[in-house]
Amino acid sequence: MIYLTMMIFVKEGKEAVFHQFEEFAIPLLEDYNGKLIYRIRPTKDTFVLQQDELPYEIHFLSFESEDDFLNFTKDERRKDFLHLKEESIRYSYLIKGTKL
């Protein structure tokens, strides 16, 4: 089992486009033994400490294996709407880990 934390920074005014991308991407997770455990849209008052800009969303996901995750990223259906991701996301951080 692998766990992924993704901090997503959306371009200003492109939130609706990002939501369109998520409508396509999230359901595909199950096809690759993936699960979106948490989808958080933080606000300034929910942070105890902040040294950089706030992410628009934080996702915490799991996949049964590294291969499942890689296959998800290569899914042809996902590639059909990657333009929405590129149009809406300025940048993101992806942190990979395992359960201790």
Score class of each variant (00 low, 15 high):
Gly13Phe: 14
Asp80Ala: 05
Ile89His: 01
Asp45Leu: 06
Leu61Ile: 10
Arg41Lys: 11
His19Tyr: 06
Glu23Thr: 14
Asp52Thr: 11
Glu12His: 09
Arg41Pro: 02
Lys74His: 10
Ala25Gly: 04
Gln20Glu: 15
Phe63Met: 03
Lys85Cys: 01
Lys74Cys: 01
Pro55Val: 10
Gln20Ile: 03
Lys85Gln: 06
Leu36His: 06
Arg77Leu: 11
Phe18Asp: 03
Asp75Leu: 03
Gln51His: 12
Met6Asp: 02
Arg77Lys: 15
Arg90Lys: 15
His59Trp: 11
Pro27Phe: 03
His19Thr: 07
Ile95Tyr: 14
Ser92Thr: 07
Glu53Arg: 14
Leu100Trp: 04
Val48Tyr: 14
Leu54Gly: 04
Thr73Asp: 05
Glu30Asp: 06
Asp80His: 02
Glu23Val: 09
Leu54Gln: 09
Lys96Phe: 07
Ala25Cys: 13
Leu29Tyr: 12
Asp67Glu: 15
Ser88Met: 04
Gln50Val: 03
Ser92Asn: 11
Asp31Met: 10
Gln20Thr: 12
Gly34Arg: 04
Ala25His: 04
Leu54Asn: 02
Tyr38Val: 13
Glu76Gln: 12
Leu100Arg: 07
Arg90Glu: 14
Arg90Met: 12
Lys11Pro: 06
Asp45Arg: 13
Phe9Glu: 03
Tyr3Cys: 07
Ile26Gly: 01
Tyr93Lys: 15
Arg41Leu: 01
Gln51Val: 13
Glu64Thr: 05
Tyr91Thr: 08
Val48Asn: 10
Ala16Tyr: 13
Lys96Gln: 13
Ile95Pro: 00
Pro27Ile: 09
Leu4Pro: 03
Glu23Asn: 13
Met7Gln: 15
Arg77Tyr: 14
Ile8Asp: 00
Glu12Pro: 14
Ile26Met: 09
Thr98Leu: 02
Thr5Trp: 06
Asp45Pro: 03
Tyr56Gln: 08
Glu15Trp: 11
Gln50Lys: 11
Asp45Val: 09
